[in-house]
Simulated scan of single mutants.
Amino acid sequence: MSTYVDGFVIPIPKKNVNAYKKMAKLGCKTWMKHGALAYFECLADDVKVPYGIGFPKMCKTKKNETVVFAFIVYKSKAHRKQVNAKVHKEFGEMPGAENFKMPFDATKMAFGGFKTLIKG
């Protein structure tokens, strides 16, 4: 079975990690409730790489920032569209949603949808 993945790389102030974790727990609960196959939120740990470019360098993080690598797995691109429509509808209907402030600068977030090339 092929899958489809939404991937995110998010620079975040270290002081906001707990607020982000709270938001991510709600995200996990909501995406999974609406049919996502898997939901991961990962905090940078071992990012001083001997080759290539580590995530902090790629994101041009400041000393007071870290990086979140997150991904959501779906059955297909069509399934992703269905799940995300339900999720966005639910979030839009939440009391106070219009005043919610993200615990990171969304303009620095990288995001994309990915076709699965190999699945183990």
Rank of each mutant, 00 (worst) to 15 (best):
G113H: 09
D105I: 03
Y20Q: 02
K89S: 11
N99V: 09
Q82D: 01
M109G: 08
I53W: 13
E90W: 11
P13I: 00
Y74A: 05
K108V: 00
F69L: 04
K14H: 02
V68W: 14
K108I: 00
F111C: 12
V67R: 00
A70I: 01
N18K: 15
A38C: 15
L43P: 02
I10A: 04
Y4E: 03
A44L: 00
A110L: 14
E93S: 06
V47T: 03
A44Y: 00
V83N: 10
M32W: 00
G112P: 09
F100P: 01
K115Y: 10
N64F: 09
P103K: 09
V49N: 07
E65K: 04
A78M: 12
F8A: 06
Y39R: 01
G92P: 05
G52T: 05
H88P: 05
M109C: 10
V68G: 08
G27C: 07
G113K: 11
F69S: 03
M102F: 13
K22T: 05
A24N: 04
P95Q: 03
C28F: 15
P50L: 15
V67G: 00
R80Q: 09
G35M: 05
H79F: 13
M109N: 03
A110T: 07
Y39N: 01
L43Y: 06
G7R: 10
N64E: 04
M109I: 07
E41A: 15
F104Y: 08
L43K: 03
V49R: 08
K81N: 11
K15I: 02
K81T: 07
T3H: 04
H34R: 02
Y39V: 01
F111I: 09
L37T: 06
A106Y: 15
G54W: 13
K115H: 08
I118G: 06
K48G: 10
D105T: 01
M109P: 06
Q82M: 06
K119H: 13
K86T: 00
K48L: 12
F111A: 10
A97W: 14
R80A: 10
E65I: 05
A38K: 15
K33Y: 08
S2C: 12
T30L: 11
I118L: 11
V17S: 05
G120N: 12
A78V: 11
N64W: 07
R80N: 09
G96N: 05
P103L: 06
T107R: 12
V5L: 15
V83K: 10
A70Y: 04
L43G: 02
L43N: 02
L37M: 12
K89I: 05
M23Q: 01
K81C: 09
I53C: 07
K62V: 03
A106H: 14
F8Q: 06
M32I: 00
K119N: 11
Q82A: 04
F40N: 07
K81W: 14
K57F: 12
